[in-house]
């Protein structure tokens, strides 16, 4: 995760080109190791157990480690060991930049310090980013004080990012939440939840980016932003919001999911408080929206 945040910064500041970023990320991806693989490598879990835990992850909003411990595949000590093996992953992008001769170690040191300053991350946030703690980073960047209970709304965005990693791509970079009133979009999928209170959520992006998102979720090729792509994006929203409502219902809050909708070439106008959070995936730029009430589209 750190590599995508930092890599995106390097690109924006024109320290590297898009081709160099792809090259660096490909190199670090080739050595990036997921915890399931580490567990197999360490002899803690069998491939079948890892497969089962991955399958359960698609159904329950739980981390791989939590599921593995719950199923008795891993002990707490074994999980701690595996997490410590993962914890140095943030260094891989710097190593790749140096190995490829794109930047010197001095340049890397200087730009890392600039990134630290420009990102506005607190010490705790920066540490969370380095430790690949997506939940902590997402919740921190998704501070939306005017929406209400941060556990509910920042928690919603943290769940959204977990689903991005689970279903779409782990190469995610996120900006801070900003309050918005009127925002233009190319293509958007959104869904309302109605009951004791009413909220809407969704995200927008370019046609090719939204089509690629849909293709990855549905695990089938898409011919652009067509009906099939809209269906797949709607299903992603159904799964995301279903998981969210499932957690809310544990607190005795029942909201009804309305059918997801897709729109193209318009402007979203918030009636109540609304926030936007830009995020980047390797295949495009997106903007996440969340707000109270029903939005108006022009």
């Amino acid at each position: 995760m750190f590599s995508h945040f930092f890599g995106h910064y390097l690109l924006e500041k024109k320290h590297i080109t898009a081709d160099q970023l792809r090259e660096v990320l490909a190199l670090q991806d080739s050595v990036r190791v997921k915890i399931g693989i580490l567990a197999i490598d360490a002899g803690y879990m069998t491939a079948e157990q890892v497969e089962t835990a991955h399958r359960l992850q698609a159904t329950f909003d739980m981390r791989f480690g939590e599921i593995a411990i719950g199923k008795g595949y891993l002990t707490e000590d074994q999980l701690t060991d595996l997490l410590s093996r993962q914890s140095k992953r943030h260094l891989l992008v710097s190593q790749a930049l140096a190995d490829k001769g794109i930047m010197s170690f001095e340049d890397i040191e200087r730009v890392l310090a600039a990134y630290r300053r420009d990102s506005g991350f607190s010490d705790a946030e920066y540490q969370a980013l380095k430790e690949n703690d997506l939940d902590a980073v997402a919740a921190s960047l998704a501070r939306m004080p005017e929406l209400g209970d941060p556990e509910v709304y920042a928690g919603y965005f943290a769940l959204f990012t977990r689903n991005l990693v689970r279903f779409i791509d782990s190469g995610i970079a996120i900006r801070r939440a900003e309050k918005v009133a009127v925002t233009p979009f190319d293509h958007m999928v959104h869904q309302e939840m109605d009951g004791r209170f009413k909220i809407f959520t969704g995200f927008s992006g370019s046609g090719p980016a939204m089509a690629e998102f849909a293709a990855r979720y549905a695990r089938m090729p898409m011919d652009g932003f067509d009906d099939m792509a809209r269906d797949a994006l709607g299903e992603f929203m159904n799964v995301q919001n279903g998981l969210f409502l499932s957690k809310l219902s544990n607190d005795w809050v029942e909201l009804e999911l309305l059918p997801p909708e897709c729109r193209s070439g318009g402007v979203i106008r918030a009636v109540g408080v609304a926030y936007a959070i830009p995020f980047h995936l390797p295949f495009g730029e997106f903007t996440f929206f969340i707000g109270l009430g029903s939005p108006i589209f022009n």
């Binding site: 279903g242 998981l243 409502l245 219902s249």
Partner: peptide, 9 residues
Amino acid sequence: ISALGQGAK
């Protein structure tokens, strides 16, 4: 068929 969290429905 339902999304999760739709117990009432």
